[in-house]
């Protein structure tokens, strides 16, 4: 019995170690490598003790100024997308929570179905339209696209969170003469804050990391950080791994820290969004 316990615990420890290596090794590896001097990135076996240097970051700054412009673009697009998605989802989520009719029920299902259409399908007709409207290569179009692909999930999430706020609160406020916008702003938004954070976390991670739409709809002015990194990977004169790792680290670290801090909201959102419909 005792031997069996030890065996089971050893097996579990091994599984946990494998899982940690699988999940973290690639991430830790590129972050540490971005601080390794020159050829040490390629040392066999990989070196974990070295004198950290900012060489690759300095090269990145000198040769890829466009990357830092990309970071700025990513920031603008991400904030725009998150704000748009949060406001639109909260308003719609409130309606779906407080009112019910056959028509509303059907439209909620259609929201979920629409969200499942592959994004690449809409790039086809949108590409010429966006060009004709002069919206190509703007922050605006990317923010709108990113927000749109998350308002369905956002609405469903906000509906679940607004459901938990007692109706009596809005009714009492309404009796006291509060208008609907005031009720939304003063009562619903503050009490549904965890839901708002959950929606924002999803949109932020998606918009910060997205590649396909940025690839098709931007070229210079609104080019986002992931797009610049993809150019580094595909660069014809061969990949400068040190610089690529430095750029990857800068792009990855903020969102990685964000996800780790917000993991509770992320989990609440994932489970509510995927299984409660």
């Amino acid at each position: 019995m005792r031997a069996e316990r030890i065996l089971v615990n050893a097996g579990k420890t091994l599984a946990v170690l494998l899982l940690l290596v699988w999940s973290l090794f690639p991430i830790v590896f590129i972050i540490t490598s971005s601080f390794k001097p020159g050829r040490e990135i390629f040392a066999v076996p990989p070196q974990w003790l070295f004198e950290p240097t900012f060489d690759h970051y300095i090269t990145l700054w000198q040769r890829w100024a466009v990357f830092f412009h990309g970071l700025l673009n990513s920031t603008i697009v991400t904030i725009g997308a998150a704000a748009l998605a949060v406001v639109a989802s909260t308003c719609a989520g409130y309606v779906y929570s407080r009112y019910s009719s056959r028509w509303l029920g059907a439209s909620l299902l259609s929201l979920i179905a629409i969200r499942l259409i592959p994004p690449i399908v809409v790039t086809l007709p949108l590409f010429p339209i966006v060009n004709n409207l002069g919206l190509a290569d703007t922050h605006f179009i990317l923010s709108v696209l990113y927000a749109t692909f998350f308002v369905s999930l956002g609405t469903v999430l906000m509906r679940t969170f607004v459901d938990q706020i007692p109706r009596e609160l809005d009714e009492a406020a309404s009796m006291d003469g509060a208008t609907l916008p005031v009720i939304l702003w003063r009562i619903i938004m503050p009490l549904a804050a965890p839901g708002i954070i959950a929606v924002a976390v999803f949109v932020v991670v998606f918009a910060w990391n997205e590649f396909l739409f940025a690839f098709i709809f931007t070229s210079t002015k609104a080019k986002t950080a992931p797009l610049v990194i993809s150019e580094m990977i595909g660069s014809i004169e061969g990949v400068d791994w040190g610089v690529l790792f430095a750029a990857s680290t800068i792009q990855l670290l903020p969102v990685l820290i964000f996800v780790m801090l917000m993991n509770r909201y992320l989990v609440a959102g994932l489970t509510a969004g995927a299984t409660k419909g």
Partner: peptide, 19 residues
């Protein structure tokens, strides 16, 4: 451990491919 295994969720496709 839970937060650690969640980490790849934060990684963009581009950086994932680079890694």
């Amino acid at each position: 451990l839970f937060v650690a295994v969640l980490a790849p969720y934060a990684v963009s496709e581009v950086v994932g491919v680079a890694m």
